[in-house]
Design a protein around this nucleic acid. Structure first.
Length: 320
DNA sequence: CTGGTCTCCTGATCGC
DNA sequence: TGCGATCAGGAGACCA
C-alpha cells in the first residue's frame, strides 16, 4: 500500500532507469484506469469502460466512442516524448515528457504529463526488454522506451485492484495547477502550515493528517507511526491539540517518512519499487500491525481499534 | 460547508 | 485440498 515513502522510492528508481529516455510507443491495455483532466474520476465511467473493454487496444481513436469521454492520443500518453522530469507530490507521481519536434517546425511541440496514482495496489515497474513480460497480469499501461544509451526498456503501470489510475495532463503547467489544490507535501511539512489546518479540523487528528487536502502523503501506516512518535492519541480532536503538541506532530511526520524512504519503503503485501524490489521499512514499524503486542517504549499492550474508518493501533500509555 | 459513510476491486489469508 | 468469508485501504461519491 504505497504512501509517500513508497512513491518516493519508485520515483528515485525511475529517475535512475528512464530519465532522458524516449517513449517509442504507448499502449493502453485497459482504458478505465485513465483519469481525464478536470474530471474527478475519468472520462470513462468504470461500467461503460468495463463493457467496452478492448484488450491491447491502441490509444488512438478511443475518443471516437460515444462515451462522454475525453479524447486521448498516443501523444497524450507520452508517445514520442522524452522523459524530462520525475516529480512527486504526496502520493502522486508525475512524469513530464517533452514532445518531439513536429516535422518542419522549429523547437519542440510542448510538453505532456502523466500523474500516476497508485492507490492500494498500484505499481510502476521498469523492465528490461522492448515489451511487457509475458504473463504479467493487470498491466494496464505500457510505455515502451529507449534509454539515452539506446537500451530498450518498458515502463509498466500495474494495478490489480484498480484503486489507482493514471491522470492525463496536457502540460507540465496543468499538472502543477492540479497539484496546487493538494495540500503541502508531508515530507516538508512545517508547524506553520499544519497548525492552522488542524485548528479548523473538527475531527480526529488521525483523520485530519490523512486528509490529502491538509497534508499530502500520509496514509494509514505512517499516520499511526507519526502519532505514536508524537505521543498523541489518534482519536484526539485535531482542533483541541495544543501548539506544542502540533509542533511535535509536525516534526514526527517527516521523521517517520524519511526513515521509511531510507529503508526502501514498507512492503506489506505487494509493494515493490520500480525494479521489483521489496522495501524493509515494515520491519521498523513501532505500532502499525502490532495490535496486542507490547509497546516498544513502555511495554503496555498496544490497543487496536477503528479511527476514521481505518484500523488503528496506538499505545494507551504513551499516547494521550 | 464539514465530516462521516459507502464504494470501488482483487488477492491473501483463515477457518472449517 | 477446497471454498466461502473476511480483510486490506486511497480517495471520490454521496449524504446528513
Amino acid at each position: 500500500m504505497p504512501e509517500l515513502p513508497e512513491v518516493e522510492c519508485v520515483r528515485l528508481t525511475l529517475e535512475d532507469q528512464v530519465l532522458g529516455a524516449r517513449v517509442t510507443r504507448a499502449l493502453l491495455h485497459r482504458r478505465d484506469i485513465l483519469i481525464a483532466p478536470g474530471d474527478p474520476r475519468g472520462g470513462f465511467s468504470r461500467q461503460a469502460a468495463w463493457k467496452s473493454l478492448d484488450i491491447q487496444q491502441r490509444v488512438k481513436g478511443l475518443g471516437a466512442r460515444k462515451l462522454k469521454a475525453a479524447t486521448y492520443t498516443p501523444k497524450d500518453l507520452l508517445e514520442g516524448c522524452t522523459i524530462k522530469r520525475l516529480i512527486r507530490r504526496g502520493k502522486q507521481l508525475g512524469v513530464i515528457g517533452e514532445c518531439d519536434p513536429e516535422p518542419g517546425a522549429g523547437g519542440t511541440d510542448g510538453e505532456r504529463a502523466l500523474i500516476f496514482q497508485l492507490g492500494m495496489s498500484g505499481q510502476v515497474l521498469v523492465e528490461e526488454g522492448s515489451r511487457k513480460p509475458r504473463g504479467m497480469t493487470h498491466a494496464h499501461l505500457e510505455l515502451r522506451v529507449e534509454t539515452r544509451s539506446g537500451e530498450p526498456r518498458v515502463v509498466i503501470f500495474r494495478d490489480p485492484r484498480r484503486f489507482g489510475g493514471v491522470r492525463v495532463m496536457r502540460s507540465h503547467a496543468e499538472l502543477l495547477e492540479h497539484w496546487e489544490a493538494v495540500g503541502p507535501d508531508a515530507l516538508a511539512i512545517t508547524y506553520r502550515q499544519l497548525a492552522p489546518a488542524l485548528r479548523k479540523a473538527n475531527r480526529a487528528v488521525k483523520a485530519a493528517i490523512m486528509d490529502q487536502d491538509i497534508l499530502a502523503g500520509v496514509g494509514n501506516i505512517y499516520a499511526d507511526e507519526a502519532l505514536f512518535l508524537a505521543g498523541i492519541d489518534p482519536r484526539t480532536l485535531a482542533s483541541k491539540l495544543t501548539p506544542p503538541r502540533v509542533k511535535k506532530l509536525a516534526a514526527a511526520i517527516p521523521k517517520v517518512l524519511n526513515k521509511a524512504i531510507c529503508s526502501g519503503g514498507s512492503t506489506l503485501r505487494d509493494y515493490r519499487d520500480a525494479r521489483g524490489r521489496k522495501g524493509e521499512a515494515q520491519l521498523e514499524h513501532l505500532v502499525y500491525g502490532r495490535g496486542g503486542e507490547p509497546c516498544v517504549r513502555c511495554g503496555t499492550r498496544l490497543k487496536q481499534g477503528t479511527v476514521a474508518q481505518r484500523t488503528t493501533v496506538w499505545c494507551p500509555q504513551c499516547q494521550k
